[in-house]
Computed example of a mutant assay.
Amino acid sequence: MLYREAGQFKASYKEDQQILPIRQDRIGMAVILAIFFLAVPMFASEYWLQAILIPVLIFSLAAIGLNILTGYAGQLSLGSAAFMAVGAFGAYNFMLRIDGMPFIVALILGGLCAALVGVAFGLPSLRIKGFYLAVATLAAQFFIVWALVKFSWFSNYSSSGVISAQEVNILGVAFNTPILKYLLTLSIVVVLALLAKNLVRSATGRRWMAVRDMDVAAEVIGIRPMRAKLSAFAVSSFYCGVAGALYAYTYLGTVEPEGFNLDLSFKILFMIIIGGVGSILGSFLGAAFIVLLPIFLNVFMHTIFAGNLPAGLGSNLELIVFGGLIIFFLIVEPHGLARLWTLAKDKLRLWPFPH
């Protein structure tokens, strides 16, 4: 088989600690990036770019943020959508109130605002964990959305609370077409995903995993749980904040509190559960699964019933099938889609010998 690592020798620790130590993985990643950066913009329709690929990328980034907190640091959160809202409104207000504010700088500042809010709501994690921490972060979801609605300064005193996002302009180039928005979103997601992959392999990531596995033992060996937990909340909220700003600017085109409701938080949680908790790759797989499966079910239902299915019944059937598939998948493979890919790679590396 092509997927073999025999003869690939490592002559230094640096080579051995690469993100993709096997040559086939590096070639495969280069091919995948070439497809998404070059082939997809050439052949994909505007519908695929705007309605499918862009939300998959944005949700993947938000799922990476939640995975850092829940998968790597072991802190359960139900407030991901609220931190996305902070990032979106932060970027909007920075661009609105500071003349000449570059979009990328506003994006980073919006993420930093989300990080500060995440640290504030992460303080209860120093005393509580598990279900009780999830309830505390759920309070963040309701409080932040309420604050954004109650204080109209955040929405520039809009009577409806729904405001149009400013035009994205970088170095004089207006990103106002689906192709340009897709390429911008893809570039940001790739860079942040690479940073996240390196971060979880660093000393900081190992501290997160030590606190996740056994916080008392981690404290005994010199790890400070307070610093580890709050840093996880900060980094996770930063990623969610950047995802929220992209969600408003490159996908919705509007900045509104209701776009970041509790359903979105649960959707992001389902993404990391299905894709794989504690896996960067799983965040992408879970986001693709959650976004694409309802579309596939919708097409499948209309094909089976030849378009004669009532709209209300069709949507309910989609929800039933969608929920049933999620439960079935969690029973069959509780470690997510990323685990299936890992098992497939292990079998390919040893084929045709038994594993």
Rank of each mutant, 00 (worst) to 15 (best):
I188M: 07
S152L: 08
I19T: 14
Q24A: 06
D16C: 14
A234E: 03
P294V: 02
N169A: 13
A11K: 12
V216R: 06
G65Y: 02
G122K: 02
V211I: 11
S237G: 01
K150I: 10
V200C: 06
A82H: 02
I304M: 10
A140N: 12
L285I: 05
S152R: 15
V119G: 01
V173P: 07
L2A: 13
I52L: 12
L78V: 12
L138D: 03
E333T: 13
A196P: 08
Y182V: 11
A245I: 01
N198L: 12
F143G: 01
L317G: 04
F103A: 09
A30E: 08
N308M: 13
I35T: 11
L133K: 10
G172M: 02
L33H: 05
R97E: 04
N308E: 14
Y47D: 06
V145A: 02
L66D: 08
A193N: 04
L252E: 07
L194F: 15
E167S: 00
F154M: 04
G275Y: 12
D25Q: 15
P294S: 08
G324Q: 10
S80C: 06
F270K: 11
Y247M: 01
Y92N: 04
K345N: 10
F329G: 01
S60Y: 05
V173I: 15
L350D: 12
R23T: 14
F266G: 00
Y182A: 04
G278P: 00
R224P: 00
E15C: 04
D25T: 08
I223T: 09
A106G: 10
P41Q: 06
S160R: 08
Q8F: 01
F300V: 04
G90E: 03
S155I: 10
I19V: 13
G336L: 03
I68V: 14
E333C: 14
L252R: 10
L171A: 15
I268T: 06
S158P: 11
S158I: 11
I273E: 02
M301T: 05
V220K: 07
M214P: 00
L171Q: 01
K10V: 07
L171F: 04
Y249F: 12
F131H: 04
L350N: 14
S187T: 15
L61S: 05
G79C: 03
Y157W: 12
V145Y: 01
G172S: 03
A88W: 10
K229T: 07
I272C: 07
K14V: 05
F89I: 02
I223N: 09
L123H: 08
A39W: 03
G74C: 09
L38T: 15
V145N: 00
F142N: 03
I104N: 09
L264Q: 00
G122M: 02
L49A: 06
G286S: 06
F353D: 11
G110W: 07
M95W: 00
A218M: 07
P352I: 13
G79F: 03
C240N: 15
A82M: 05
F289A: 10
V145S: 00
